[in-house]
Each structure stands twice: as structure tokens, then as C-alpha cells.
Design a protein around this nucleic acid. Structure first.
Length: 510
RNA sequence: CGGGGUGUAGCUCAGCCUGGUAGAGCAUUAGCUUUGGGAGCUAAGGGUCGCGAGUUCGAAUCCCGCCGCCCCGACCA
């Protein structure tokens, strides 16, 4: 019997929601489409922030904070950008409420002369600042980052994966030329890969988005794509080379060494709380979440087998000493995070709570363990042997010595497991569109597992690309990206039959 | 925004077809028992049956409208 009522095989979307709820990550709020991130979920996000913020700063970026509300007129400046976001913007129109016929309503006499939009992303207001801050080539490169909330009025929301409000990080940089801006774009992509793979243990494929999937206003968009346990792709981070589009729209220029006024080349890059959804769908099992040790707010949770008797005091002391000792140790490059759960609840209930949350190591310590100087624990990956829970008993001193290694091994095992699953579910051998149709089927009985397709194409543009998109859409497929690692030679284009120039990944996506 | 489903106690749901004034399990609280692993017994508390209007002597149940949630679609750096 599993800790969750729904299994992945029975109903993947139901199972996903069960994990979010049962692992105490988040819940829906009374505000439509928005979620309340609970302590365990927020702790996971904060781990992500800590890891990524350190890398962003180490590479020479400073953190800033721009307003959540942006004057509407700012968005009118970049045409493609407007097209991309206009349909999902929340607009602030009034600055006062008034009792009208017994109900609170926006005061008609308090309408803003210019509406404000809740930022869906900050290119426009940051670009405005750039145009004032950048005067000379000596001011470049300018490298900013902000941790913020953004709002996109989505029609259909899903916890973590797509909500009306979410938390993210947005990097914005300005450079003297394309080469420097492209270096930044690729740096951000690689930095994302390293955090997502090394810290979250989610394997990804780095690549460039096709023209029709670009960020509105970008010259080139790169992404990291991750395969979920249902075979769907999740865009886990994006990095954009914006060319001079925003510089033109917002007059971001610098005086070059020859004294001329030159347009800056800008970039932007972002990752969001969506990654937590990706972590759930990569590492979750039928007992809940398996939190990668590097991401776990608490890596070792000790559940004392308290029995409401005098000897409880001794047992509590034993556990407190053990935690203190563990917290002096280091694992995965940080001090270990151990915790004793002394909540007045039944030990078995507490154990299962931590199993569902996915604490990497859960120690269940009773009076006998304390008397014998032992630690009894379970590993969240490899939790069961058959149907039974598999527990381990070792001497306390050995546990303290082994704990960092256990956490590091678990981190590697989770990554290796996901990596193997991803690789074995990317299929080659599709030579024509008909091959794709055969594999993915024309009618959607989505219960059957379908991974990704790796195919060659001639990289059509414009109307021809749109046609390709439509054909794929009939199979509910999208082009995810063209991996940075390309083969030496290409076959025929799967769509047109002409010689191909690029290898791309095709998948169903979140 | 379109199609389908659904909404009854904190959670999972029964009751609805065939109208008669609210149920179960889990959870909560209290007591006793139990104690190396999601305990047992007893008792108690907890519900404007999503919201509104209608039919009726009487509506969780029938009719109409609206809303939320879930799935599919459209849309979605």
C-alpha cells in the first residue's frame, strides 16, 4: 500500500496534484489561479534561490528590484512584445475603493490617467532604466538580475506549472556587441543547466528554440528541456538574445570609442517556480515526492519514538545531540540540514508525512536505539523492498560519518535514474512525418507512454514553418529545441524530404 | 473562452434517478487501553448540501441561471 491514493500509472495529472497536496508543497488560494506556497514548498524554492543566486553573483551580476506595476505605455514600444503578452495582462485602473449601493467598488472618480499593468516580465521597465544608465562603452556590459513575482492571466492554471502569479528570477544584460551578448546568453543557459542538473537532479537538453517558439521580441531563444515521467517535455528555463530590438524601442545606446552613438545588444533569461513542478514530475513516486538532497530544506529528519513515558526525555536528548552532531558535518557543498520532529503526534504518522514530503533520510529512533547507540533509518529513494519498507540500523558514530555520503549518493542516484529514463525515451529512426503519425497516433489515448522524437529537418521559416507547426499540432506535438550538440551529418528533412540541416527534438509538452 | 465531468463535515465520498428536513470512513477533541513502527475501544464536536432564483405543503434531490474546481481543446518567453 502506497502513501498516495493515486498512482502515476493510474492517473498522472491526479497523482501530480496529490503530491502537491500530500507533500505539503502548496495549495490553491481563494484568489483564482494563484497558489499559496507552503513551508516545505517555499523551503525548496529558497534552496533553489540560494544556489542560483550565488552563481549569478559570482559571474558579476548585481541584484536590483524594479516595480511590480509598469505604465501601460511602456508596453506599446516593442510591437512583437505587445503581441506576445497583451492577452494575459492584469491591469490596474483605479486607486481607491468606494461604497456604492452597499458594495465596495472602484471609485469612478479615482480612475488612473494611465493604467498600470502588473508585470508579466520586466524588459520594458528595465530597458527604460538601461537607456538612462548607459552612456558610454565604459558602462558596458551592464548585468542585472531580479528575484520577483510576475503575473500572467492564464486561462488554465496548474499548480507550479502555470499559475496566474509566480515567482521567478529574471536576468537582464546590455552589451556593446552581438558577440558579447551571445556569450552572456550562452553563459546563462549553461548556468541553468548546471543548477537544474547538479542541484535539482533534473536532466535537461540544452538547445535553441525554433523561430515560432521564440520569446516575443527575441532574435534567438535557447531553452533547457526536461522529460517528465509521463514523457512530456517541460521547458525548464530560457535564455534570450534580444539583438537590438529593445535597444531600438527604448533608445538604449552608448557612445563608442570613436564617439558615435551605438545600439546596445541585450539579453534576458529566466527560471521560475515552475521548476518545482518539474522536480515533482521527475522525482516523485507513488509515495510522494523524493526531494533531491541538495534541494531538501531538511535532509535528515529524525522521528523519535516517543511513548509518553519518563524515558522520553533521554530519547529526546539523544536525538538532539545527534542532530547537533550531524549539523556540524557537510554534504553536497553545504552544512548538513538535520532536524528532529518532536511534534506531539504519532510517530508512524510523522514518518509518513516525511515520506510524502520526500525528506532524503528519515531516522526512526526508539529507546532501544538510544540505549545501544544506534540509528535506524530509511532512505527515501529505495524506500521499499518489494512492498515492505526497508530500514537500516547502524552505530550512531557510523551514521554520522556515512550521512554525507548517503546524501551525495542519493543525489547522484536520482539524477542517474532520471537521466537513464530520459535517454531511453528519446527515439530516433523517424524518417518521414508518417513515421511520427504511426508512433504518436492520430487519436489521443494518452494513457500509453510516449517519449520524445529526435528528427532531422531543413529548418523552414515563415509560412512553411507554420505549416510544420500545424501538422505537429494535429499530433499534439511541438518542437522543443534544436540541441546544441548536433550530429556531423544529416539525413532528409522529415517534413519536406529535402536535405536536412539540423536535428531537433519533438514532444508533447507542458 | 468551447466540450465533458464535478461541487454534500477538515479530507475521500454515499444519498439525488423515485422530493419528507443530513450520512459513512478517515481526521479532530476527551477518556481508557496499547506501544519497535500508518493502533484498539468508548464518547463528543463539526455541514447556510457551491451561489441565486423557481416549482412544491415540503428541495441536497426537480427546473433555470451563475460560480469554482478537474480533464480535453484553444491559448500559453
Amino acid at each position: 500500500m502506497h502513501a498516495l491514493k493515486v498512482t502515476r500509472a493510474e492517473d498522472f495529472p491526479e497523482w501530480y496534484q496529490a503530491v502537491v497536496r500530500e507533500a505539503d508543497l502548496a495549495e490553491l488560494s481563494p484568489t483564482r489561479g494563484c497558489m499559496i506556497i507552503k513551508p516545505w514548498g517555499m523551503g525548496i524554492w529558497e534552496r533553489f534561490v540560494a544556489e542560483m543566486d550565488a552563481r549569478i553573483r559570482a559571474a558579476g551580476h548585481d541584484n536590483y528590484y524594479f516595480p511590480m506595476m509598469i505604465p501601460l505605455s511602456f508596453f506599446a514600444k516593442e510591437a512583437e512584445h505587445v503581441d506576445g503578452f497583451a492577452k494575459e495582462m492584469a491591469v490596474v485602473t483605479h486607486h481607491r475603493l468606494k461604497q456604492i449601493d452597499g458594495t465596495l467598488k472602484p471609485d469612478p472618480d479615482a480612475e488612473l490617467t494611465e493604467p498600470l499593468i502588473l508585470r508579466p516580465t520586466s524588459e520594458t521597465i528595465i530597458g527604460d532604466a538601461f537607456s538612462r544608465w548607459i552612456k558610454s562603452y565604459r558602462d558596458l556590459p551592464l548585468k542585472l538580475n531580479q528575484w520577483a513575482n510576475v503575473v500572467r492571466w492564464e486561462m488554465r492554471t496548474r499548480m507550479f506549472l502555470r499559475t496566474a502569479e509566480f515567482l521567478w528570477q529574471e536576468g537582464h544584460t546590455a552589451h556593446a556587441d552581438e558577440a558579447d551578448a551571445m556569450e552572456e546568453t550562452m553563459w546563462a543557459l549553461e548556468m541553468y543547466r548546471s543548477v537544474v542538473e547538479d542541484v535539482m537532479a533534473i536532466p535537461v537538453i540544452c538547445g535553441e528554440k525554433p523561430e515560432n517558439e521564440r520569446f516575443p521580441g527575441a532574435d534567438r531563444t535557447y531553452s533547457i528541456e526536461a522529460m517528465m515521467q509521463d514523457g512530456k517535455a517541460l521547458q525548464a528555463g530560457t535564455s534570450h538574445y534580444l539583438g537590438t530590438h529593445f535597444a531600438e524601442a527604448q533608445n538604449i545606446r552608448y557612445q563608442d570609442k570613436e564617439g558615435g552613438q551605438t545600439l546596445c545588444h541585450t539579453t534576458s533569461w529566466g527560471t521560475s517556480t515552475r521548476l518545482i513542478g518539474g522536480m515533482i514530475m521527475t522525482h516523485g513516486d507513488d509515495d510522494g515526492l523524493r526531494t533531491p538532497p541538495a534541494m531538501a530544506p531538511r535532509q535528515i529528519v529524525i522521528v523519535p519514538m516517543l511513548r509518553g513515558k519518563p524515558e522520553d526525555a533521554e530519547l529526546k536528548q539523544y536525538c538532539a545531540d545527534l542532530v547537533a552532531e550531524l549539523n556540524k558535518g557537510w554534504a553536497l557543498g553545504s552544512p548538513m540540514r538535520a532536524y528532529v520532529d518532536i511534534k506531539d503526534a504519532r510517530p508512524a504518522d510523522k514518518r509518513w508525512d516525511w515520506v510524502r514530503r520526500g525528506a532524503p533520510l528519515i531516522c526512526e529512533i526508539g529507546p532501544r536505539d538510544a540505549a545501544n547507540g544506534q540509528v535506524t533509518f530509511i532512505k527515501r529513494n529505495g524506500l521499499r523492498e518489494g512492498e515492505k519498507i526497508k530500514s537500516h540500523s547502524v552505530a550512531r558514530a557510523d551514521f554520522v560519518t556515512q550521512a554525507p555520503g548517503l546524501l551525495e549518493t542519493m543525489q547522484q542516484e536520482l539524477f542517474a535514474e532520471a537521466k537513464a529514463r530520459t535517454e531511453s525515451n528519446i527515439r530516433d529512426g523517424f524518417n518521414t512525418f508518417a513515421d511520427l503519425e504511426r508512433y504518436y497516433g492520430t487519436d489521443d489515448e494518452s494513457a500509453e507512454f510516449k517519449g520524445w522524437a529526435r528528427v532531422h529537418w531543413s529548418r523552414p521559416t515563415g509560412a512553411a514553418l507554420e505549416e510544420v507547426g500545424n501538422r505537429l499540432k494535429s499530433l499534439k506535438l511541438t518542437i522543443r529545441n534544436a540541441p546544441l550538440k548536433q550530429p556531423a551529418s544529416f539525413g532528409a528533412c522529415i517534413f519536406t524530404g529535402v536535405p536536412a540541416v539540423e536535428e531537433i527534438l519533438i514532444a508533447r509538452a507542458y
